[in-house]
């Protein structure tokens, strides 16, 4: 099998107020269908080990997770090597139903923004209320970052994971780097209510 390469070969930037890194390759599978159907919940739980999230949320455990994308779409995450296996299981389970499961791992780029100012970096770029009491860990929000569509997920450890199309990966990385450049702290969010931990 050919070698899997992420869009920016895991580019990394840590000279600024937050650490920006391209992560991956991450296995991503889109599921479209009736999300309230019991079999969708059951199958999604079976292949990932996590419950189907409620609206606007993302559940994860280890390398696997499920994110709520829209009223009829889920994003299933798993280790990249397991994608063919997971997809085969989904196809077998969805066989007779009007449900789609498609591998989108190669269509997306994934970034991690980490550090005490991560929230600020994202707040500069997206028209989303990222106040610590409004945007809480586990939330998953599809929005616009700069000029491109993206999804923002606040992980339990306080870091942000950003999903965008692979074709705009360089733009996204440059944008995050610019928003995280040294000395660009805004100080809008009180530090004690932001990320409750020291930079690791």
């Amino acid at each position: 099998m050919s070698e899997t390469v992420t869009a920016l070969k895991n580019a990394h930037y840590d000279a600024g107020i937050a650490e920006v890194s391209e992560i991956g390759p991450l296995g991503m599978i889109t599921i479209r269908g009736d999300l309230d159907a019991p079999f969708v919940r059951k199958v999604a739980k079976k292949v990932t080990g996590v419950e189907r999230p409620e609206r606007g949320m993302c559940n994860s455990e280890g390398g696997a997770g499920i994110a709520w994308m829209s009223p009829d779409e889920l994003l299933l995450m798993c280790p990249h090597a397991q994608v063919p296996d997971v997809l085969a299981r989904l196809h077998a389970a969805f066989e007779d139903t009007h449900t789609l499961a498609a591998n989108v791992s190669g269509a997306r780029a994934v970034f991690r923004v980490d550090g005490p100012h991560a929230r600020e970096v994202l707040a500069k770029l997206a028209p989303v209320d990222l106040a610590p009491e409004k945007f809480t860990p586990g939330m998953f929000r599809r929005t616009r970052v700069g000029q491109v569509p993206a999804a923002i997920w606040l992980r339990a450890d306080g870091s942000f994971q950003i999903f965008c199309f692979r074709s705009v990966a360089q733009y996204m990385f440059d944008l995050l780097k610019a928003a995280a450049q040294p000395g660009s702290e805004v100080g809008y969010f009180p530090p004690e209510s932001g990320v409750n931990r020291e930079k690791v």
């Binding site: 609206r55 606007g56 829209s70 009223p71 028209p127 929000r141 929005t143 616009r144």
Partner: peptide
């Protein structure tokens, strides 16, 4: 009304 997200008009 579909995903119940409140956002400003540039997201629409």
């Amino acid at each position: 009304p579909c995903c119940h997200v409140t956002a400003e008009e540039t997201e629409f």
